[in-house]
Design a protein around this nucleic acid. Structure first.
Lengths: 88, 88
DNA sequence: GGCGCTTCATACCCAATCGGTATTGGATCG
DNA sequence: CGATCCAATACCGATTGGGTATGAAGCGCC
């Protein structure tokens, strides 16, 4: 699992659409699909239901979404903390 | 910044020695040195003081260490949460 | 003071990963 | 039943990551 995958996952969850999420992330659709799939493989559980209209979060996905956001927030906090201290 | 870099950083901080940390992480010393340096570069602040006896955490490093551990703990929590729910 | 040891850093190489383009497969709707 | 809109797959070039060999610098001990 990588931090990029977490950002990708959050984007797809919010857009409910791989193509739109890819645009927002400034990458192409296929690599994004792949990363989402790899994340699911690594977790051993599907996070989305694939529909002809896009991606719908499964309950496991909802659970993971909250954790992913917390992790990304913690990363931002860590960077800010060090930079703030260094600035001093 | 990657999760691997955070694990590497915690190992080096705990061992206060790149060589020992590398052994513990099952990678070679030079790649580990590089990742630590890249992390410092990206954060824009040195985290360790290099001494002839090893690595000593700087105050910025102490601050970052707490954050790094929190992030890694959050990652473990996220994995466990999804797997637990999927197991059900 | 010089030799040797220990430590992290650098140089170079190869393998793995990542993202891009082109295309396919599948479901829905007119 | 054909057009359309999805995500998924195949393949390729570029980037990144780790390994081996080597260097540079500080400390300790004769």
């Amino acid at each position: 699992m990588s931090l990029a995958q977490l950002e990708y996952f959050v984007a797809v969850a919010e857009e409910a659409h791989v193509g739109r999420a890819a645009q927002r992330l400034h990458i192409a659709q296929p690599p994004l699909s792949r990363q989402i799939r790899r994340l699911e493989d690594e977790l051993g559980a599907p996070l989305f239901e694939r529909t002809p209209r896009g991606m719908r979060l499964l309950p496991e996905g909802e659970v993971f979404l909250a954790h992913a956001r917390a992790i990304l927030r913690a990363v931002g906090d860590a960077q800010r903390a060090v930079r703030a201290r260094h600035g001093v």
